[in-house]
Simulated assay, not measured.
Amino acid sequence: MKAMLAEAEPDDRDLLALAREGDRAAFARLVARHYDFIYRVAWRWCGRKADAEDIAQEVCVRLGKAIRGFRGEGRFTTWLYQLTLNAARDHGRKLSRESAKTQAYAVHALVDAATGPEPEDAADRLWEAVRQLPPKQCEAVLLVYGEGLSHDAASDVMGCAEATVSWHIHEAKKRLKTLMSEARED
C-alpha cells in the first residue's frame, strides 16, 4: 500500500488506514489536508482567531489519540465535525471556568462581543449574532449555512433527527431577525 501512495495522491480512506496503523507521515498529511476545515469551523463557533487556533490544535491532538477508534462507518468529515464541535464546546467551558463566570458560553461570547471592537462588515455582525444563539441553534446554523451541509448531513453531525435540525434553523432565523434589528437600532 505504501508503494501505491508514493505514485498517486492518496484519498482520506488510504491515509486513515495508514494513520490507524501508526504511520505518522500519513497522519500528518491527513491533518494538513483538513486543518483549514477544522480552523474554519472553530472560528465560526467562537469568532476569535486565538481561540480558533487553540481549538484547532486541540482537535489535532484529539485526532491523534482517537484515530485508531475511527471505524470508517460514516464519513471522516462528519466525525471531524463532531471532534471540532466537541473541542469548541470544551474550550468554551474552559473559558467560562477561567473567567469565573457561572453563565453559559453563549453569554460569555455576548459579553466579549459587546466589549470588543466593532465588526467591520455585515457578515461579521451576522456571525456575532449567530454566536449569541443557544448552542444547538448556533451549531445548526454553522453547519447548514457556514459549512453548506444539508439538514440531513447536519443531523448526522449533531446526532439528532433531520426535523430537529430544521426546527433549530427555523428558531434561529426568528431569533436572528430580532438580534439584527436590535443591533441596527443601537
Score class of each variant (00 low, 15 high):
L63H: 01
G64Y: 00
K65P: 03
K65V: 14
I67T: 05
R68D: 12
F70L: 06
R71S: 14
G72C: 08
E73H: 12
G74F: 02
F76H: 00
T77V: 14
T77F: 02
W79E: 02
L80V: 05
L80P: 03
Q82I: 12
N86G: 11
H91T: 03
G92F: 00
G92P: 02
G92S: 04
K94P: 02
R97K: 12
R97W: 09
R97N: 02
E98F: 02
S99H: 10
A100Y: 10
A100L: 15
A100H: 11
A100F: 12
K101G: 10
Q103G: 10
A104P: 14
V107H: 12
V107G: 01
V107D: 13
A109W: 05
A109P: 01
D112N: 05
A113S: 07
T115F: 13
G116W: 04
P117H: 10
P117K: 08
P117Q: 13
E118D: 09
P119T: 02
P119R: 01
E120S: 10
A122Y: 11
A123M: 10
D124W: 02
R125S: 14
L126E: 08
L126W: 05
L126I: 09
L126C: 04
W127S: 01
W127I: 01
W127A: 01
W127E: 03
V130F: 05
R131W: 05
